[in-house]
Simulated assay, not measured.
Amino acid sequence: MGQQLTAGDICKRKVSVAYQHTSVVAAAQLMREDHVGCLVVVEDANGSRQVRGLITDRDIVMSVVAMGLDPEPLCLEDVMSARLVTANEGDSLPELMRSMREYGVRRVPVVGANDELMGIVTLDGVLKILAHEMNLLVGSIDTSLKHERVRRP
């Protein structure tokens, strides 16, 4: 059996980020510009980007728009997810999936030493990997049928 995939193996390394004091409007504009549904909120410390939170398009809708609040004076620290779920680079794919299920999250920042941002894993990305693996299994069924027909015409 092959080596088990880790969060570090499957994470997207190019991550859209913002800061706690970024305005909600600027964050929404950045999401639109980058065609993403979330931003990892970071803080620059000692030459690295340390993860401090996560803001999603849903957070903005549920915490600002649906509440009828004016987004202009708000910044990300006012509305970002308080409960942050992260994965370490060495966490296995099954561990990562368990965390996503347990905490009900679709996006998980991947961190290295001292909570330094290394990448992000999304539910969409995990599903693509699993679909690929399932496709490989289906291919083995087709191959076994071909071998059967050759051995027993």
Rank of each mutant, 00 (worst) to 15 (best):
E33M: 09
E33S: 07
D34P: 10
D34W: 13
H35K: 06
H35E: 09
G37H: 08
G37F: 10
C38W: 07
C38Q: 15
L39E: 15
V40T: 06
V40Y: 14
V40F: 05
V40I: 09
V40R: 07
V41L: 03
V41P: 09
V41H: 05
E43I: 02
E43N: 05
E43T: 10
D44E: 11
D44H: 09
D44C: 15
D44Y: 09
N46Q: 08
N46P: 14
N46E: 15
G47L: 04
G47P: 02
G47V: 12
G47S: 13
S48F: 15
Q50G: 10
V51P: 05
G53M: 13
L54M: 11
I55E: 00
T56F: 07
D57Y: 01
D57E: 12
D57R: 14
R58A: 05
R58K: 06
D59W: 00
D59P: 02
S63G: 13
A66W: 00
A66F: 00
M67G: 02
G68K: 07
G68W: 15
L69G: 08
P71N: 08
P71I: 03
E72P: 02
E72F: 05
P73E: 00
C75E: 11
C75H: 09
L76T: 07
L76K: 15
E77F: 07
D78N: 13
V79E: 06
V79Q: 10
V79I: 08
V79D: 12
V79G: 14
M80V: 05
M80F: 13
S81T: 08
S81I: 05
S81G: 03
S81L: 10
A82P: 05
R83H: 04
R83K: 14
V85W: 02
V85D: 14
A87F: 05
A87Y: 15
N88W: 04
N88Q: 07
E89T: 14
E89C: 12
E89I: 15
E89F: 12
D91R: 01
S92G: 09
S92K: 08
L93I: 15
P94R: 00
P94N: 01
